[in-house]
Design a binder for these strands. Structure first.
Lengths: 249, 249
DNA sequence: CGATTCCTTGAAGGTTGTCAACGTTGGTGG
DNA sequence: CCACCAACGTTGACAACCTTCAAGGAATCG
């Protein structure tokens, strides 16, 4: 039912990026996405339990995955036991391409839940780069990753958007199978602070995150709070207009 | 003299990435870099004064540049007058490719100094993606950008490394034509704090940043300080060994 | 040299991390 | 069913870090 919308061509490019990517490349992007989805659709599928490591730091058993069901994340561990989560993958995401191009020596990709993936061998990467459509799409995809990293503070908004594209948001709420520790690792904060912030969001009736269920009530204000944390009030037309002309300090 | 080492084939891929990228792609990467450098070498060159905007948010006059001499940066401005610098470009860097693929609506690329660039029209991007070598190289390049963004706190180390590859480091020191305000914008901190931190680095004899000249004395400790700021002590074998086994919480 | 920008420093206050404790939940085995 | 355990969530007190506000000194450029 919802697999249909995931793989039947009404992809990310069509729905969201048309106006944003270079016009001359739009056709290639859409085409590349279709082709790649098609390849994965025909690829063997595998279901693995939570905690399974899909991509390891050492270059053994390199594969490419499309995440078909469930959540996964990229994890980087430090010798002292701490870890950070530079990337979160949801259903429909592709895994292993940045890795094929250039491995961060100490990253691995692990399943957060039991997940179903479709698997291709990494050998095909050169083939993909030999076709203009798929090459363009992969480059775009890698660029998207970066754009997403720049919006970490808007994590909830970003996840909501990505899940909505894939019909995984129902009645304004979605499932978030992350512990507060994992959220903290992703945002570079402490569990304690994440907990307090989530409480604040709840009290302010901006969003509720409880028992792995997220309900966003006031998207606008959430976005505002997130960006204020990082860079102070973008779009702050309501900041004292008398000071608006003040240069910078 | 030093242009030679920049453009005569002993490029980034050869020197630094051989062991790190996927073996099957290494040849394509090196080849793609050579071809792209060759194209820029044959392209018309332009010299513009400091402050010139090379890439604008609106999609007018889209071009691709190789920065031949001088520094430039990507700037994102907020309505309240603040700005951040998500990216810094040094001699040898390519500018405009992420933009061609997907424009951040409010970013522009500006020259920090008078710069010399070689210019290609953005029309050739589809052509570049049609060749396996150049397509692979571009995807790698876009991925590199992200990797660099993940190491912001090591800004000085990173710049040192990039400049060293291009023979722009002499006697352990290099030129850094950024104001403390620009450094602050890049790191997401305030000028005041950048100033105090630089003083600390000077007092600790780790690095000296003065009058746009940087001298790194103790790279190891600098790296340590930088990573500690973000994620606490990676590689901290010297942290109290009695507590080393303590799980996390 | 005058003016502007940049650098530097102090004081005060807000934000986030650390440490530590306790509550809650869910699973396991008696 | 209950006892127990382990992981997760929640909260308080305090410290460290970073920002804000403010002001004065130094460098640069016409």
């Amino acid at each position: 039912m919802r697999e249909a919308s995931l793989f039947q061509g009404c992809g990310e490019i069509d729905q969201f990026r048309r106006s944003r990517c270079h016009p001359a490349l739009y056709e290639d992007l859409a085409q590349g996405e279709r082709e790649l989805h098609q390849m994965f659709r025909e690829a063997p599928s595998r279901t693995v339990p939570a905690g399974t490591v899909l991509v390891t730091p050492d270059r053994q058993s390199q594969s490419l995955y499309m995440l078909h069901r469930g959540w996964a994340c990229r994890v980087r561990e430090w010798p002292d036991g701490r870890s950070i989560i530079p990337e979160i993958y949801v259903a429909g995401d592709l895994i292993g391409f940045e890795t094929a191009l250039r491995m961060r020596p100490d990253d691995e990709v692990a399943a957060i839940q039991p997940v179903t993936v479709q698997v291709l061998e990494a050998d095909i990467v050169p083939t993909l780069f030999a076709r203009r459509s798929t090459a363009t799409y992969l480059a775009w995809l890698i660029g998207e990753t970066q754009r997403r990293a720049e919006r970490r503070a808007e994590m909830l908004v970003d996840l909501h958007e990505r899940l909505r594209r894939r019909d995984l948001v129902t009645a304004g709420s979605f499932n978030l199978p992350l512990t507060q520790q994992q959220i903290a690792d992703h945002l570079g904060l402490t569990v304690v602070h994440v907990n307090r912030t989530l409480r604040l969001l709840r009290e302010e009736k901006v969003a509720i995150v409880d028992k792995h269920v997220v309900i966003l009530h006031d998207m606008t204000r959430l976005r505002l709070l997130a960006s204020r944390e990082l860079n102070d009030a973008p779009g702050a037309e309501d900041a004292a207009p008398a000071e608006a002309a003040k240069p910078r300090s």
